[in-house]
Amino acid sequence: MAGIPMLRLAGVSKRYGKDVPALSDIDLSLPRGQVLALIGPSGAGKSTLIRCVNRLVEPTQGHVWLEDIAVTRLRGAQLRRARRSMGMIFQEYALVDRLTVMENVLSGRLGYVGFWRSFLRRYPGEDVAEALRMLERVGMPDSMDKRADALSGGQRQRVGIARALLQAPSLLLIDEPTASLDPRTSRQIMRLIRELCSERDLAAIINIHDVALAQRFADRIVGLRDGRIVYDGTPDGLTPAVLTTIYGEEEWSTAPAGDEESGGVGHTRQMPLPVGDAS
């Protein structure tokens, strides 16, 4: 099914209560293997968008297709089966603190094994072997019996990545992977994600605040503002004018005068494109 995109959203909207909609009428399609960065100001609906894909948030309207599966129509066991082919990586890592690293990684197999097997921690041999390989791959070969709360932020995010990949996903949903990390660790994590996507031909949607990192590591950029797509194109196309459309003119004007006059691209200036650290 080469012709069918990996993921397709049609007319997806989300409204919390009676408030202004968090998402309105999103159309998006993502081919296999493409890494898409979703940028936009806080509250633009980035988190809501990726949670609508695996239905951690229930969209009010519209449809989501994962290849030929209509995710928005699924219920119960079918939904869980669809979820296991969509790995998710979180901003605050979302590890279960009191479980060991190995248990956290193996929890990526929960959609595949039965309750008692998972409850007694008797995972099949190939799952354990794969978990060990993944820990090795993300650079944490020797920490499997440590408890998750004994790790540093970067290490936790590596465990979170290993967990998502253990699901053997075809799509990764990544929510602000670097927001809690320092700049150097952020770049390492983003590079790791990028490499893993290429190795396994994974499509990915990455929510990210940091425009420079998005430009550096993504194939395609989608800009979201007030729940609508206002930019969809290559990283090179992110001109100052486009950034103004995404992040909003009025935000620049509230900043101290004289600071933002050269095109109003505060974000890109604060974090210049890194050089010399490329993979």
């Binding site: 690293v101 190995m102 193996l106 041999g125 190939e126 020797d142 499997m144 019996d145």
Partner: peptide, 18 residues
């Protein structure tokens, strides 16, 4: 986080104990 304690390999199958 030693590896020897909770991993056992018999033939090709790997088992892990909490």
């Amino acid at each position: 986080g030693g590896r020897g304690e909770t991993i056992t390999t018999t033939g090709h199958a790997v088992t892990w104990r909490r």
